[in-house]
């Protein structure tokens, strides 16, 4: 699992999942995109690094 990314796969899945839910409830999209599927938009937002999420890890 590459470590140069900030989040591991579980965290990434959780972030995109949470964001997709927000989008499906009508949250404003944070990137320019053609897509309409919430989870695909969320993935693009994740890649762009604009999502305002923090992951709290044990001991940190």
């Amino acid at each position: 699992m590459s470590t140069d990314t900030e989040f591991n796969r579980y965290e990434k899945a959780r972030i995109i999942g949470a964001r997709a839910l927000q989008l499906s409830y009508g949250a404003p999209v944070l990137v320019e995109t053609e897509r309409t599927e919430p989870y695909l938009i969320a993935a693009e937002e994740y890649d762009a690094g604009v999502l305002p999420f923090t992951v709290r890890r044990e001991g940190k």
Binding site: E6, R14, P52
Partner: peptide, 18 residues
């Protein structure tokens, strides 16, 4: 995924590409 403690806000933790 079930054990990720996700918090909204505090943008400093996310690096912004824009």
């Amino acid at each position: 995924t079930g054990d990720v403690d996700l918090r909204m806000g505090s943008g400093s933790a996310m690096k912004s590409a824009d």
